[in-house]
Amino acid sequence: MIGERGQGAAHLARTAVLVIVAALWLGPYAWMTVTSLKTLPEILRAPAYPLPQAVQLGAYREVLTTVPVGRYLLTSLAAAIAIALLQIALALPAGYALAKLRFAGRGAAFGLVLACLLIPAQVTFVPVFTLLGAAGLVNTFAALVLPFGVSALGTFLVRQALLSVPDEIIEAARMDGASELRIIYGILAPMLRPTLAALFLFSFVFHYNDYFWPLVMTTDDEVRTLPLAVALLREQGTGVRWHVVMAGNVILSLPVLALFAVAQRHILRAVTARV
């Protein structure tokens, strides 16, 4: 209607941005995949040639035979799922007490949760490492999971979500004789499903991807996670075998990208939740 010319220019600009952006963000994924399908001589001969001579799965075979990918993947998945579930299981009762119950010290307890939001793993890992060492827990699955058993952010978000649940629902459940735990896990948790789903996915993705914590807390193959193994692919041996590293990269990224494709909405909700 108004400003036809401006709109035409805007349309052109937008199309240009679309093409450039798609190339900038999808190009690297494409390059990773293409490289993983090449052979080493091919890469050395023409490092920048875009297409493989033939689709070669040799790099994937090499990753799968030299690295126990299955076990690493399992450790990564188990740790990430355990952390996400534990965080939700503990955030629910704490959030319920903070949002719904009147008691002496509530303000202080809430303040404590908020204060812990300010303490990232990068500040605590040195003493946690020595603490876990003293307890003989370095190099165990527990060292990967327990330090993240409570998420201050998760507790905070569950409390916020519970604030908007009417008290009458809880009162009615109490009249029916439901125990507090039954109210929390049986009645309130299902009502909070969107919040909990967002929390689970956010936590899962973060800890599946995490490199820092497993790196400093484990040296033992039994409990090492997939990101560590893939990063090691590059450091091993002489000369970088890029096709193998990229095959590892594809294996590492695929589960998260697949999850992202099906649950983008929930992940976005967790990311855009404002404290």
Partner: peptide, 19 residues
């Protein structure tokens, strides 16, 4: 209800900071 959360926050956030 708050005890588990308090223990985790104490052991893995506040105590390490003090240490």
């Amino acid at each position: 209800l708050l005890l588990p959360t308090a223990i985790f926050l104490g052991v893995f956030f506040l105590l390490p900071l003090a240490i």
